[in-house]
Computed example of a mutant assay.
Amino acid sequence: MTNSETAYAKINLALHVRRRLPDGYHRIETIFAFLNQGDQLSVEAGEGLGLTIGGPFGEGLSTRDNLVLQAARRLAEMSHVPHGARLHLDKRLPVASGIGGGSADAAATLRLLNRFWRLDHSVAALADLAKPLGADVPACVLSQTCSGTGIGHDLTVIPDDGLRSCSILLINPMVPVSTAEIFAAWDGRDRGGLGEGDILSVSRNGRNDLEAPAIALVPVLTDLLQMLEEQKPILARMSGSGATCFALFWNAADAKEAERHCLQQMSGAWTMIGSFL
């Protein structure tokens, strides 16, 4: 039994916002996909539930009011766990960046403690348990390419053979954005749902309806997306509510060249290259 778990970075290959709901959430249609890299969670036995945080993006994060601890407490309460755990989060992904972040950390916590406490919950049961923790958390529990509808909780795993060999470049201008602010700035116009076909066609013919409001708040995203398009990727788009953008390439060499090109023009940006999980 391993005492660590990766909180896999999430991207939205497409994200169509259909309407606002009375509870403040939005009805969406999206395609979730996951990189083979992300934050790292580890655990050891301990009294109660405790959390320490390190890593490049760990500074300033709360070790008391954190989705990791919220997930741990919920799993312990729902499963009647009598013992505790000491968790450590190695924060490698930027905060408030549209690639899962806290949602992926919460999901990894559920998978890790399910194994550490020998609870034997199915992944589907963990995803269901995760729903109150946030719109993206159930998808992050699965960490499989899937479509998400409703507020993102209604998940269907979809074939991704057409993308398996791709390399993915993530790039963030190191400007944190508020998901709530971006959704609030959405113009409310329903531009239609996802189309049909193979995942690559559906993704390329799709869009991210949050790009326009994000660009209005973070204008540098226009330059970032243009830089990515200059490298002639399979697909380039903003992920989630931003500000991380991604580009898909057929091979790692092209992704690396695109990374070099972008960093030459935007020093200080954060990048990561991975493949589909």
Rank of each mutant, 00 (worst) to 15 (best):
S4L: 09
A9N: 11
A9I: 12
N12S: 11
L13G: 07
H16W: 09
R18S: 07
D23I: 14
D23Y: 13
L41A: 07
E47T: 12
L49D: 01
L49Q: 00
I53G: 00
E59P: 00
E59I: 05
E59G: 00
L61T: 03
T63A: 11
R64M: 07
V68N: 12
V68H: 10
L69T: 08
Q70W: 14
A72E: 12
R74D: 03
A76L: 03
S79T: 10
L87P: 00
H88I: 02
H88C: 05
D90F: 10
R92C: 06
A96I: 03
G98Q: 09
I99L: 08
I99M: 05
D105C: 12
D105F: 08
A107K: 08
A108I: 04
F116G: 02
H121W: 13
A127T: 13
A130M: 11
K131F: 04
A135Y: 13
P138T: 08
A139I: 02
V141P: 02
T149D: 12
G150N: 05
H153D: 15
D154A: 13
L155A: 02
L155R: 03
L155C: 01
P159G: 03
D161A: 15
D161M: 09
L163P: 01
S165P: 02
L169R: 00
L170S: 01
L170K: 00
T179Q: 03
W186N: 04
D187P: 03
G192I: 08
G197L: 04
S201H: 07
I215P: 02
I215C: 10
L217P: 05
T222V: 14
L224V: 13
Q226M: 09
Q226Y: 14
E230M: 03
S241G: 14
C245M: 09
A253K: 14
D254Q: 15
K256E: 15
G268F: 11
T271L: 06
T271R: 08
S275T: 14
